[in-house]
Simulated assay, not measured.
Amino acid sequence: MGRDVYYFSHDVNASNDPKIIVMKELCGVIAYAWWWILIEQLAVQEDYKLPMDKITFTGLGIAFGMKQNEANASSNEANASKTKQAEAFINLLINECELLETDGEYFWSPSLVRRNLLRKNKQVEISRKRSEAGRLGGLKSAEQRSKTKQILQANEANEANQAKGKERKGNIYSYSYNEAHENEKSDKEILSMFDDESKKHDPYKNVFKIYMNDVGEISSVTKEKLECLVNDFGESEVINAISKSSEVGKASIAYITAVLNNKIREEAAKDNGASKCNSDARSVSRKNSRKDEDVDWEKEYQRVHGKK
């Protein structure tokens, strides 16, 4: 019966095994080839055994390529048929060389059985370890998903407690988070949780979701920083900064802040450039105006001294 076997172990010094040496001495060096053909036949059988019957011996004789007078297993069987020669060779391996064992119905190689069972046990152990690793990986993934879900639920539960935000500063060229933040809400902010304003568009929620999708989890410190950025730069600007940082592979709260600060600098530089151009234009205008209004000093002298 066929088995899903692709190889069996073979010692590199098998030819030095005393039992193999005895076999070659009794049957000639050709017996070494017959031996490995026999092992190949046994390796693909169920339980690694072959029956002790005429069909088996005939098939082995053909597989060995035995001819008349070649398989000299014993002097009295020199002219035996291929079946007899193969049977004699198997009996010699059982009784004289002790390479095979039999129970009278089947014969097998103890070494082959031992090696294949060892290999099979190793495969089972490897399969078990891989299955366990996959199970642990699945648990870790489920734990991570649960943690992310809890964060989202916590953010949604805190929507009603979000402050309306601070007023945006005029010119911000650097941004610091070292300032102490208020720990208590005013009575007005607490009452606002029950107002209809909480049902309106919440800019923080969108920023939080996009940050978690593009960057990662939000700690309490990161959450507070994002709220400040939304208050100072606006929801759309913060979302654009998050997307830009993710595209360049530098997704972090520090890089997002740097992107927003850099934009403020660029806008301020443009405003200063426009103001300078307007100032230069006014200076040129005043200069041209003075040139157009030249004073007639002779008339002024006559007017002052009463002369015509």
Rank of each mutant, 00 (worst) to 15 (best):
Q162F: 10
N16D: 07
M193C: 11
N121C: 08
E182R: 09
G59F: 01
A160E: 01
K308S: 13
S146I: 07
N288F: 08
G216M: 12
A163T: 12
E96S: 14
A251S: 13
K149D: 09
T222V: 15
A258N: 15
K84H: 03
R282T: 13
N121H: 09
N261M: 04
D17T: 04
G134L: 14
I30A: 15
N91E: 00
V22I: 10
N278W: 12
E70Q: 14
N79S: 13
C277H: 11
S75I: 14
E184G: 07
I20H: 04
F8H: 01
P203H: 05
K209T: 06
D202C: 02
A63P: 13
S236C: 09
N13I: 12
V215D: 14
K84G: 04
Q45Y: 09
E70T: 11
E267W: 07
M1H: 05
R135F: 06
G234K: 08
E40P: 00
A33K: 04
T83K: 03
F8Y: 05
S236H: 06
A254G: 13
V248L: 07
A80Q: 02
T58W: 09
L92S: 00
I62Q: 14
Y6Q: 14
N116C: 10
T257V: 07
L117T: 10
T58R: 07
A80K: 04
K205D: 05
Q85F: 07
E159P: 04
E98C: 05
V44W: 13
K164W: 11
K120E: 10
S146R: 15
Q153E: 05
S252F: 01
E189G: 08
V295D: 01
V113R: 00
K120D: 11
